[in-house]
């Protein structure tokens, strides 16, 4: 398990253990990865994060278009495995969780432990020390490389 923000590790580790998730990914609503469990390739991870954030954005927009509240959870049930995708609010802004699980667990269990994860993250989040600053193009590559090192240990 790897995380850009270390305080996320304990809640996510507990979630993975209790829900029996195969893969888990926490990201911001813009698709920036915060923590991951189970992914082995940076390219896969970045693609999955971008696609997951895109699904949440498009399904939320679909709901708004027909006059509903944005969907909080999107679940894709496959034959071998399933995806659970949900957004939630944290002290650090809106995040998205993407969970891949198989027949060793159930959607209901993943949902139950996801609710616990949201509570645990809210409790574990340290207060922000400095106001958010604008991300400059010059900083972007350095921050991306630092994030990839944190997420894959390279």
């Amino acid at each position: 398990m790897r995380a850009v923000e270390p305080w996320v590790v304990a809640p996510l580790r507990a979630f993975v253990a209790e829900s029996s998730a195969r893969l888990a990914l926490l990201m911001t609503s813009s698709g920036q990865v915060v923590a991951q469990h189970g992914f082995v390739g940076a390219l896969d991870l970045m693609s999955v994060a971008a696609l997951g954030a895109g699904i949440v954005a498009s399904s939320s927009e679909l709901a708004v278009t027909v006059g509903w509240e944005p969907f909080r959870v999107v679940a894709h049930q496959g034959k071998e495995q399933a995806h659970f995708l949900a957004w939630f609010d944290t002290p650090r802004g809106r995040w998205i969780a993407l969970v891949v699980f198989g027949s060793e667990t159930k959607l209901g269990l993943v949902r139950v432990f996801f609710e616990q994860l949201v509570e645990d993250l809210a409790a574990a989040a340290p207060p922000e020390e400095e106001p958010r600053r604008e991300v400059l193009a010059a900083d972007f590559e350095r921050e991306l490389n630092a994030s990839l090192r944190a997420l894959f240990g390279r």
């Binding site: 159930k106 959607l107 209901g108 269990l109 949902r111 139950v112 609710e115």
Partner: peptide, 19 residues
């Protein structure tokens, strides 16, 4: 493991029981 119908007392988490 999702709830189809439930009749539970206040304070009980139907979703957790179902799962």
């Amino acid at each position: 493991g999702l709830v189809v119908a439930e009749s539970v007392m206040g304070g009980l988490k139907g979703g957790a029981l179902a799962a």
